[in-house]
């Protein structure tokens, strides 16, 4: 009995067998994913270290609170929830494609792979909207004693500490007429922006209700670089995953894997795609939840 047990324990390493019981390509995909984990890990850990070194960090619920076609409605984390749902769903369709591949079902593989590609494209579209919204949406920011309209870029963040009304009233006196016209125009659409800009400074300042304004100081400079860098790197992975899936789908439809006798290539593409979903779990955690 003891001999049988020993044979069983060591048979993977005694030659004639793959010690990991997987083909070369799949093993190499796993090793690539380990290295990619360290890349993303390094990015997220450096973000964490910088965040730990700051006294103030903006609350994600204040930054990510918009949803397409709902205007100014305050919907914290709603849109990113949709993005997360899309990515989980596309992971499910991918694993179903891999499963159909195990059964050698060409039609099933093609169907689920198509859904996965559509899910990936939907996610990328959502990210494009979110980026555009952050990069173009202007927010009143107190800079050097005057108010400026800032959007979230790689170098500027409008998400600092909230400013008190008394400080806002003082800052309005120093603010340029263009910014004042924009501030008035946000709530008052009876005049066009150019008409407003022609008004005298005092009149414009008088038209602004200080108590209704949400003015913040400049936020941490590092926020934009980390956010766009890491979500961008993840988005690049989603994009390359979509490209890989499209190539694989074309190969499936051309019967390449049918001729080869197995659909193991789907498994490798699947591993990459699930990894993209896995990274999103942590991007979602680090940027949106905590």
């Amino acid at each position: 009995m003891a001999t049988t047990a020993t044979v069983h324990q060591t048979k993977w390493w005694s030659g004639g067998k793959s010690p990991f019981n997987v083909e070369y390509g799949k093993l190499m995909m796993w090793y690539f994913l380990i290295s990619d984990t360290f890349t993303f890990g390094a990015f997220l850990i450096s973000y964490g270290a910088i965040r730990f070194s700051q006294n103030f960090w903006p609350n994600p619920g204040d930054i990510f609170n918009t949803f397409p076609f709902t205007g100014e409605a305050n919907l914290p984390l709603a849109f990113v929830s949709l993005m997360t749902f899309i990515l989980i769903m596309s992971s499910v369709t991918m694993v179903l494609a891999v499963h159909e591949g195990h059964n050698g079902n060409k039609k099933g593989v093609a169907k689920w792979l198509t859904w996965t590609i559509l899910g990936g494209l939907a996610f990328l579209s959502c990210q494009a909207w979110e980026w555009t919204h952050l990069l173009t949406g202007e927010h009143a920011t107190l800079v050097n004693g005057q108010i400026e309209m800032w959007s979230q870029t790689v170098t500027h963040s409008p998400w600092g500490r909230p400013v008190e009304s008394s400080a806002v009233a003082a800052a309005l006196q120093n603010t340029s007429p263009e910014v004042l016209a924009k501030l008035v125009h946000e709530h008052n659409h009876t005049m066009s922006l150019s008409q407003l800009a022609a008004l005298p400074h005092d009149q414009l300042a008088g038209m602004i209700k200080v108590s209704e304004m949400h003015v913040r100081e400049a936020g941490p400079v590092a926020f934009g670089g980390f956010f766009f860098g890491i979500t961008g790197f993840h988005g690049f992975h989603v994009f390359s995953g979509v490209v890989i899936n499209i190539i694989i789908l074309a190969m499936v439809n051309n019967g390449v894997f049918e001729r080869r006798g197995h659909y193991l290539m789907i498994e490798k593409a699947g591993l990459y795609w699930h990894f993209v979903d896995l990274v999103w779990v942590f991007v979602f955690l680090c940027f949106y939840l905590i």
Binding site: F56, L142, R161, A171
Partner: peptide
Amino acid sequence: TMEVPPKTTKPAQ
């Protein structure tokens, strides 16, 4: 950068 909002800003000119 402390958490509490500033009570006053720099004197406006």
